[in-house]
Design a protein around this nucleic acid. Structure first.
Length: 412
RNA sequence: GGGGAGGUUCCCGAGUGGUCAAAGGGGGCAGACUGUAAAUCUGUUACUUCGGUUUCGAAGGUUCAAAUCCUUCUCUCCCCA
């Protein structure tokens, strides 16, 4: 199989941070190469913060290489201290198993597993049966604690406390690389920049035990220009599972990125050609809204498919461009019977019931601070009763909390 | 094992008997301004049937009254062994 220059693609698109032997790796990548990236299934779904390495894997696969997706069913049972200040919460084995299944499914949106184009592995297969004494003797002896303590990831934790179990993470990840190298001849590990230390440790282990050369490549840790973590909102992570984050909310997350991030995100989180991404990201003023719409649409399409992406886009347009005839069906909604509406519901209760506000206090606050609107009319009297007189010609009632959160009550 | 310092509302961090649902900052939310942007300014930020109710690591206790005092437990950090 022919390969294209994967490093070049990753550099152009803003993924590339550093690699262990660039010249050697470029040479290596002239042939189809097995590479791996690990994901610890510590949650029930992938979220947007996981995606830089995922997109990178997809680009590498398109360049002709063979991804080995490593799901950390074993390592999820402990925690990686890299870049974290808290210890990971322990999960049950059943939780991890179900997380692993979900991860596999979601990764299929990016990586093609057909015809042996990619392999999926779970490190629980070799980590779980490990014998402690054997592991210490065969693997542990290759690690110097002195050296490990010099790693940035551990330094931070020296202040707040680092448990022995987490300290071992590097050994396990190194062992993963060794194991994948033996099993699948996997000679390249990729990951976020915070994984540098772990990747290098794995390479050293392979060199010592197998006397083989391997490579490491890391990606920039992407932060939003406002400094927040990628894919996080106040309400939590933006998940790829549509039960957890609705298609509409996912779309809106990307629709609302900062101007400064648009070009960068198009390159990282869509498959549009680089020059197109750059053109869109360079748009000025209000015009960049068009680029944000493309970003949100393209991203949503990759995750949930074109139909859902169109629905989300139309719903967003309907919400933000009042008076349009666009399709509102993708908007978050709830059904109410006409009987219920005739009885009427207090506005504060209504905003709470629809989930626009988490509590009545907050709902009351929203209304009294002039942040609530029904059918685009501001309502600031907390005693207002919403009844059938509010039903529009579309047979619905449109609630709005603040400027961006919409909810549609469909009357049936 | 011994000694010390701590655990406060989303986060950091004040508070050492009533004036504390708890200063200040961050973050969030809302309003103004806008382009579903950023920046800025303003308000707001436990729950509530608006009578109250629950909150300061956990459980008891003292008191008219406790985040604040006492007891036990628990977790974290530091020093010694």
């Amino acid at each position: 199989m022919a390969t294209t220059d994967a490093i070049k693609v990753l550099k152009e698109r803003g993924f590339f941070s550093q690699c262990t032997d660039e010249a050697g790796l470029i040479e290596k990548l002239k042939e189809p190469t097995r590479f791996y990236c690990g994901f610890d299934p510590t949650g029930p779904s992938l979220h947007c913060g996981h995606l830089v390495p995922v997109f990178a894997m997809a680009h590498m696969q398109r360049a002709g290489h063979l991804p080995v997706v490593l799901v950390g069913g074993g390592t999820a049972r402990i925690g990686d201290p890299s870049g974290k200040t808290e210890m990971r919460q322990m999960l049950t084995i059943d939780q991890i198993k179900s997380n692993v299944e979900e991860f596999k499914k979601q990764l299929g949106n990016f990586i093609t597993f057909e015809d042996g184009g990619a392999i999926i592995a779970d490190n629980a297969d070799w980590l779980a049966p490990l014998n402690y004494i054997d592991f210490l003797r065969d693997i542990g002896r290759h690690f110097s604690v002195n050296r490990m303590l010099t790693f940035e990831a551990y330094k931070k934790r020296m202040e707040t406390g680092l448990s022995f179990i987490e300290f071992n993470y590097q050994l396990l990840q190194s062992y993963d690389f060794l194991e994948l190298n033996r099993k699948y001849n996997c000679s390249l590990q990729i990951g976020g920049d915070d994984q540098w230390g772990n990747i290098v440790a794995g390479m050293e282990l392979i060199r010592r035990i197998e006397r083989k050369e391997s490579f490491g490549l890391t990606f920039n840790l992407v932060a939003r220009s406002d400094g927040k973590k990628m894919g996080k909102t106040e309400k939590g992570a933006v998940f790829l599972n549509k039960e957890m984050t609705s298609v509409y909310d996912l779309y809106q997350y990307w629709r609302n990125v900062d101007d400064a991030d648009v070009g960068k995100f198009l390159k990282l989180f869509t498959f549009l050609p680089v020059d197109e991404c750059e053109r869109l990201g360079a748009l000025e003023g209000a015009e960049i809204n068009a680029a944000k719409e493309i970003l949100a649409f393209e991203f949503t399409k990759i995750i949930h498919g074109e139909d859902d992406a169109v629905t989300a886009r139309e719903a967003a347009r309907a919400a933000f461009k009042s008076g349009g005839t666009a399709d509102k069906s993708g908007m978050p909604s709830i059904e109410y019977s006409i009987t219920q509406m005739k009885e009427g519901i207090n506005i504060v209760d209504l905003f709470t019931e629809t989930g626009l506000c988490p509590s009545k206090s907050e709902s009351r606050r929203l209304v009294s601070q002039n942040g609530a609107a029904v059918n685009d009319e501001k309502i600031n009297d907390v005693n207002t009763i919403i009844n059938e007189t509010f039903i529009t010609s579309d047979n619905d009632i449109l609630l709005k909390a603040g400027k961006k959160r919409f909810f549609r009550i469909v009357i049936k």
